[in-house]
Simulated assay, not measured.
Amino acid sequence: MSRRPYVRKAERSWWLHHPRYVAYMVRELTSLFVGLYCLFLVVGLIRLAQGQAAWDGFVAAFSSPLGVSFQLVCLAFAIYHSVTWFALTPKAMPLMIKDEPVPDMAIVGAHYVAWAAVSIVVLIAAGM
């Protein structure tokens, strides 16, 4: 046994050399923006609990051009994250019914149908 084990050098840009790695890293990056948006929604709930003036300030901040831009970037990242995850789902969660594999398109399609149904319910609950 060697006293000096082999340590392979890894570049910081290792993931830029293959398109699948780039897609994976971008998908992982999108989760940060989704988490940030969730954090800002929690801040909005806190401001709502603090009263009308605090809530109005929060709404004004989110209605500013910077706030709208942030929301649009978060929306784009959330859509990218969802679409790439739905495409990955049949590989991450293979489904068998009566010892027969469910086709990949059926699993992906079911996710899109559920996404649309939940979106419709949320829009109805929001009064739109």
Rank of each mutant, 00 (worst) to 15 (best):
L29Q: 08
Y37E: 13
L48E: 02
H18A: 13
V34S: 11
W14R: 12
W14I: 04
Y37P: 01
Y24P: 00
S13F: 05
V34A: 14
R27L: 04
G44T: 03
C38T: 10
G44E: 02
H17Q: 14
L29A: 11
L41G: 03
R27S: 12
L36N: 07
M25R: 15
H18Q: 14
L16G: 06
A23T: 01
R20I: 06
L45W: 07
R47M: 07
V26D: 03
R47I: 04
F40C: 12
G44P: 00
V22R: 15
V26N: 00
Y24V: 07
Y21F: 09
H17F: 09
V42T: 05
L45A: 10
V43E: 05
A23S: 06
S13H: 06
Y21G: 12
L16M: 14
V42W: 04
Y21A: 15
Y37A: 15
P19Y: 00
V42F: 01
Y24A: 15
R12D: 14
C38L: 13
H18I: 06
M25P: 04
A23P: 03
S13P: 06
S31F: 02
G35F: 11
F40A: 10
L48W: 01
R27W: 03
T30G: 07
H18D: 12
L45D: 06
C38E: 06
G44A: 11
L36D: 05
F33P: 07
C38H: 05
R20P: 00
R27P: 01
V22L: 14
L39C: 01
V26E: 04
C38I: 10
Y24K: 14
L41P: 01
L16E: 11
W15E: 06
I46V: 08
G44Y: 04
V34M: 08
I46N: 00
L29H: 04
L45K: 04
H17S: 14
F40P: 05
E28M: 15
V43L: 08
R20F: 02
Y24M: 14
L41F: 03
L45Y: 04
V42P: 05
G35N: 10
W14D: 11
L41H: 02
R20K: 12
G44L: 02
V42I: 07
E28I: 11
L32Q: 13
V43M: 08
F33M: 15
R47L: 04
L45H: 05
S13D: 08
W14C: 12
L36K: 08
S31R: 15
V34C: 12
S13T: 07
E28Y: 03
